[in-house]
Write a protein that binds this DNA or RNA. Sequence first.
DNA 1: CTTGAAAAGAACTGCCT
DNA 2: AGGCAGTTCTTTTCAAG
Lengths: 153, 153
Amino acid sequence: MIELDAIDGQLLRALTRDAGQSAGALGRRLGLSQPATWRRIKRLEEAGVIHGRQLRLDAEKLGFGVTVFLGVKLALRGRVSLEDFERAVSAIPEVQTVEHVLGLYDYRLRVVARDVSDFERVLRRRVMTLPGVGDVEANVLLSEENLLGPLLV
Amino acid sequence: MIELDAIDGQLLRALTRDAGQSAGALGRRLGLSQPATWRRIKRLEEAGVIHGRQLRLDAEKLGFGVTVFLGVKLALRGRVSLEDFERAVSAIPEVQTVEHVLGLYDYRLRVVARDVSDFERVLRRRVMTLPGVGDVEANVLLSEENLLGPLLV
DNA sequence: CTTGAAAAGAACTGCCT
DNA sequence: AGGCAGTTCTTTTCAAG
């Protein structure tokens, strides 16, 4: 594990808000020179703390108005491997995230669809036919807020 | 809604894999010049399709080894407003995401903690004391895979 | 850690097809 | 729409305090 001081925390906080700002502008606000700021960011990347930069897309603007979280419990455990399930679920284009979890469900899926009837198609023809699938529970996303998290306190 | 052609789709797909690559390098692979590629990206940003770029942090390297998804059902509905709940939950530093959903639960929370006993502290002292909280269900994250989603097919 | 400088590269602009 | 050429800004590396 890497040692982070207060300035690293401030850098991560600022970059989490906007990953596209320049090292120079960032450093000026924190009272650091541009090369010093740049070296700190580089160090965080090399340590693996910063894993990369991800594009944030607006699903609605792309015509996907419905986002649903599915909790999936596997039946037939032992007869169907987790790898089979994961491979099949990863091949569904509407699935954005696959989370293997421990608890009431075995997997949590984030699924998008154009509308409710499109979601029904995905659910019936894609999800319910996955190998070993048992109970499925659905929650429709109304709104979502991403916070900084404690990584940065 | 904005019209996207095949090239826009390829751009979004490439940028979703790595949001940090330059317009020049991207264009060369698609047979476009640097300004043409840049103008397309700019257009997607201005249309709101690209909402921004987010830093991807490695929670484990920052000392947060446990990620838990909580499904929260509110009791006392009507007596406590959703706004009160949302304001209180957003103030918990360990909460990374708040999703307002429709279904078996009212809210889904993504929570990180240093370890299991740290998570117990968050659950007992922070989550269970939220205004109006009723049933709480937990799923511990084992592994996670982010796919491109259908935005890009 | 800082400043200053220099080279490389990426972002942005205007003009032309 | 796309390409070309040029300008501006940022990144990246270096030397020296």
